[in-house]
Amino acid sequence: MSATIPLFPLGSPLFPGMVLPLHVFEQRYRLLIEDLLDLPDDATRRFGVVAIRQGWEVGGGTFGDAEPALYDVGCTAVVRAVSRRGNGRFDVVAVGSDRFTLLKVHRDLGAYLQAEVNWLPGPDTDADTVPEAAALGHVVGQLFLRYISQVARLHGTEIALPQLPESPRELSYLVAAGALLTAEDRQALLVEDLTASRLMAQSHLLRRELTVLSSLRAVPVPLVQLAVPSSLN
C-alpha cells in the first residue's frame, strides 16, 4: 500500500525508534511544520526522512542551487513536540517510525518535496530468525559497549555505559544510529529487512571500527561525511 508524505532530506538516515531533534529555520520546512500543525488533533503528524547521496554535488548542482539526489529508502519521523520560536522558527522533536521506499518524488506540489512511498516490512518479518537475532544481539551489544568505551578513552573522558535495549531489533537500530559510520554504511543497515542480517553486518562494522580505533589512536570521522551538511534545512 502506498501513501504520499512530505519529505525532509538529511545528511544521514533516520532509524525506527530513534529520536530526531530538529531546529527548523528554512522557509520551506517551516511551511512543512505549519502544514503538519494544521492537521486535525487525532491525525498522525509525520514526514519522511531520506538521506542525501554523498558528494560535493548532488542532483547536478551544488547544495545551494539544486535539489538533492536522494537514497531510495527512508524512514518516517512522527512529530512528538513542537516549540514555536519568536522569529518564526521551530524546535521539533520527532521519533523514527516506519521504513519506506520512494516510488516517485514530487517537486512541484508545493514549497517542499513530497513523495509517493511504499511501506517496507515491519518487525513481523523477523518471526523466523528470533533465536539467531538474540544470539547476534548479545555479541553486537558487547562490541558496541567496547566501542563506546574506546571512543570515550580517546576523547580523554569517562562515560557511564548505557543500558542497552533487550530487543535485538531495537538494539540494531540504536547501534546503526550511534556508531560513527559512513552514510553508505548506515543506509545499508536501514535497507536491511531482517534484524539478524542487520546485526551480522554490524558485528563486522564494529570490529572494523575497533581495529581502526586501536591502530590510529583517534576517533575516525569518515571524510565522505565531511562533504555533506547534516541537513538541507
Results as ranks from 00 to 15, higher is better:
41 D>L: 07
144 F>L: 10
196 A>S: 14
188 A>K: 11
130 V>M: 09
91 D>G: 08
36 L>I: 05
80 R>S: 14
139 V>E: 13
32 L>I: 06
66 A>L: 05
54 Q>N: 08
229 P>F: 01
107 R>H: 12
86 G>D: 13
199 L>N: 01
28 R>C: 00
10 L>G: 02
219 V>T: 01
188 A>S: 15
101 T>Q: 02
232 L>I: 10
135 A>G: 10
156 G>E: 14
91 D>P: 00
141 G>R: 14
56 W>A: 11
6 P>G: 04
194 L>K: 06
201 A>M: 12
154 L>C: 10
43 A>D: 09
83 S>C: 07
38 D>K: 11
57 E>V: 07
134 A>L: 09
100 F>G: 00
6 P>V: 01
158 E>Y: 09
81 A>F: 10
168 P>Q: 04
116 E>L: 03
214 S>C: 03
148 I>Y: 15
178 G>Y: 14
222 P>H: 03
79 V>A: 08
104 K>H: 11
16 P>H: 02
197 S>R: 07
39 L>R: 15
73 V>Q: 08
72 D>M: 13
128 D>T: 07
98 D>H: 05
193 D>T: 02
209 E>Q: 13
232 L>V: 08
103 L>P: 01
152 A>W: 15
94 A>V: 08
227 A>S: 08
74 G>H: 13
75 C>A: 06
11 G>C: 10
135 A>N: 08
146 R>S: 14
31 L>C: 04
212 V>I: 10
45 R>K: 15
156 G>W: 12
185 D>Q: 15
18 M>Q: 15
185 D>R: 06
199 L>H: 01
161 L>Y: 15
85 R>W: 07
95 V>S: 12
40 P>A: 04
73 V>Y: 12
182 T>H: 05
205 L>P: 01
201 A>R: 06
145 L>D: 01
174 L>S: 04
30 R>P: 00
147 Y>I: 07
165 P>I: 04
23 H>T: 07
115 A>W: 12
34 E>V: 03
11 G>W: 14
190 L>E: 12
154 L>K: 05
129 T>K: 01
74 G>E: 10
86 G>A: 12
190 L>H: 09
153 R>Q: 12
113 L>C: 06
26 E>P: 04
227 A>F: 10
94 A>G: 12
80 R>W: 13
137 G>F: 00
177 A>D: 15
137 G>S: 03
189 L>E: 08
49 V>M: 13
141 G>E: 08
17 G>Q: 01
176 A>N: 11
170 E>T: 04
114 Q>E: 13
113 L>R: 05
128 D>M: 04
188 A>W: 11
70 L>P: 10
14 L>D: 02
164 L>G: 09
227 A>P: 01
156 G>S: 11
210 L>Q: 14
28 R>H: 06
129 T>N: 07
217 R>L: 10
44 T>G: 02
178 G>K: 02
196 A>L: 06
230 S>G: 12
229 P>H: 04
89 R>G: 07
182 T>C: 02
66 A>K: 13
214 S>F: 02
141 G>I: 06
160 A>I: 11
104 K>G: 02
229 P>S: 03
20 L>S: 07
166 E>R: 03
127 A>L: 00
183 A>T: 08
84 R>P: 00
55 G>E: 04
77 A>P: 09
206 L>D: 15
37 L>C: 00
53 R>N: 04
199 L>P: 00
131 P>C: 12
138 H>N: 12
2 S>G: 11
17 G>Y: 06
120 L>T: 02
